[in-house]
Nucleic acid binder design. Structure first.
Lengths: 250, 250
DNA sequence: GATAGTGCACTGGTCCGACCAGTAGGCTGC
DNA sequence: GCAGCCTACTGGTCGGACCAGTGCACTATC
């Protein structure tokens, strides 16, 4: 006792050090999207490691969506612009492995969408309002055409709202969670017997939401959007999870 | 025209096929957390590839947080339980690279926290109410001790609320976004001259929120929690971003 | 017989050298 | 000036090798 207290040393793999250095360069802006990394054979010289080690580091960076490499490309791996691809992947994994229920996902969409509407009601531009008009018109036109077209227009509407909220995190999470939800129940929706009636009802609801956004009534838009989403998805959510959804309807 | 329409073939790397197979096994439950993968030398036999390829696949799986390997472990790589570590990593990357502003992050926390309170007001158990009581008491006791202790108690309160919401996605996102926000401004908070006053005010606000949750008044709890977070963080948010935050205060 | 100590078989981490298919850009021939 | 080939290089994969760790069985000891 009283001697110097030594701390356990953590052995750090060589490839991890490489990953760290490259990540740091990207975060700090030294490496920008579009720029190229040196070739693997150059990197093994710069880092003084073997090519296997360089490649393992590149695999990790690629798995994180930071770089992309193509066989035969004489310019080396390309630094990628950030995309929510990895975010979606981890969230999808979470949904499947950790057992996220459809109810939780829909509930989260209600939270995101209503918040987006709340903000959009105050911050939207005229162009965005016009875009929402266009999206609803497309939904109307798509009812007779098919569910895919309707869904595309519906997605466009919600994306515009999310964009109008001015919050990138809301936009990205909206996109990610929606794609998971749609992936889970796309087949059921397409096969629903009351599909057309659901679409028509959804259009009416979207019109009401848009009217509230246009009028600048955020709380109303938020409340209506929650109701819209609830009515549209509740049929696919197990009965036991519905009370939790209704808790968001005030 | 009229002939068979061929689709472009995507060349799939060998290591990607391995990653896919292992991921599929984990998602389907064939491989459960705690189970072990065969050793790399076994895997190269099972997949009929070289060890380098097996290792690159394992690096990707490890980067995604699905497995973990230790040098010398005679049992092979271990399948990991899902943790939001990767989610946090991608979101942190997003925040840094894609330029998420502090305002957006705080705004998102307001959205998450108010929704959690809204749900918690209806779904909370008595045990969770008691936990929140304990957390606030700890906050009170920590004012004189130091900011770290206060922050820990504060985090505990919000975590309990998120848990009481019954939505895992809200819990995880809350945790992730909070750690990013705190990482961005922890030093500023600790150095704020009116730190103690802010803490006392925050405690009062938390008590009001808890009272609303206890009374089952979701909308009130949600509104108060937004106000609480706004008042606590607004001083660190650039003036230009404050109107967007205020848009959430109704 | 229980236990502490030792050795071994095996692990993952790293290195090396090699081959292949694919790409881009320069070069050649027209 | 342009089309087409050639080549030097790329990333993807392979096989073999060595090292430092780890866990377990075996052994010697009490």
């Amino acid at each position: 006792m009283g001697g110097p207290r030594f701390e356990p040393v953590r052995t750090v793999r060589a490839y991890e050090r490489i990953v760290e250095q490259v990540e740091e360069a990207i975060e700090s802006g030294t490496l920008c999207p579009g720029q190229r990394l040196p070739s693997e054979r150059d990197l093994m010289g710069q880092f003084s490691v073997s090519r296997s080690t360089v490649r393992e580091a590149l695999r990790v960076l690629q798995a994180r969506g930071l770089v992309r490499s193509r066989p035969g490309d004489p310019h080396g791996a390309e630094v990628q612009p950030f995309t929510p691809t990895e975010l979606r992947k981890s969230m999808t994994m979470l949904a499947r492995v950790d057992g996220l229920s459809l109810g939780e996902l829909v509930q989260f969409r209600m939270v995101l969408d209503s918040s987006a509407n709340l903000l959009a009601a105050r911050l939207r531009t005229d162009e965005q309002l016009a875009e929402m008009d266009t999206a609803i018109a497309a939904m109307r036109a798509a009812v007779e055409v098919g569910y895919d077209e309707f869904s595309t227009a519906d997605v466009a509407f919600h994306d515009t709202v999310a964009q109008a909220s001015g919050n990138k995190l809301i936009q990205i999470c909206t996109e990610v969670v929606r794609s998971i939800v749609l992936g889970l129940i796309a087949d059921k929706i397409a096969a629903a017997p009351d599909r057309v009636a659901l679409m028509r009802q959804s259009i009416r609801h979207h019109e009401e939401v848009l009217a509230a956004v246009r009028a600048g009534d955020g709380p109303l838009a938020a409340r209506l959007s929650r109701r819209t989403m609830y009515d549209y998805y509740v049929g696919y959510v197990p009965t036991s999870e519905r009370p939790a959804l209704r808790a968001l309807l005030e």
